Simulated assay, not measured.
Amino acid sequence: MSPRDIRWLVQVDVERAALEERWGASEVARDDFAEWFCFAFATAEGEAFVLLREVAHPPAPGFVLSVTKGLFSLEAADRIVRRLDVAGAQITHTNAEAAS
């Protein structure tokens, strides 16, 4: 998945430890700006989504959920967060473009 193929959709209040307990250890991805804890997933339909959190200086608690074009909706974000199957995970902020 290329970074230009995904857009941030929502911020999810969820602990890294809870994600790792459910889904295994996070990967660490690097770009020109920072290192990121990363959980990446693909759907059977070929879409993808990723949960990201800056390693050193996260600006907010939780993870950013970024998605490919076919998942860019608040309905998809709700489904993804439910299917993460992590107690207490909830959406805290949304991309205004997805809300319109």
Rank of each mutant, 00 (worst) to 15 (best):
A99R: 13
W8A: 09
S66V: 13
F49H: 05
R79V: 08
E35P: 00
L74Q: 08
A29P: 00
D31V: 01
A17C: 06
F33M: 11
P59Y: 08
V14N: 01
V50E: 15
A56W: 09
L52Y: 11
R22G: 03
I91W: 06
F33R: 14
F33A: 13
A34F: 11
S100R: 15
P59C: 02
S73Q: 08
S66R: 13
W8F: 09
F39M: 01
T43C: 08
L74F: 09
F37C: 06
D13I: 00
A99G: 05
V81Q: 01
L51A: 06
G46E: 04
L19H: 03
E45T: 14
R79T: 07
L84T: 07
A40G: 11
P59S: 12
D78F: 06
L71C: 04
G46C: 05
W23V: 12
M1L: 04
E45V: 07
E45I: 00
L51R: 02
L71A: 03
R53A: 07
D31K: 03
S66Q: 15
I80W: 01
E97Q: 14
G46P: 01
A34N: 15
E15W: 02
R83I: 00
V50M: 11
Q90F: 08
R16C: 00
N95A: 06
P58F: 04
S2F: 04
V12K: 09
G70F: 09
M1I: 03
L74I: 08
E45R: 13
T94M: 04
A48K: 03
A17W: 06
E15G: 05
A89P: 02
G24I: 13
F72R: 12
A98Q: 05
A29H: 12
A77P: 03
S2E: 11
D85L: 12
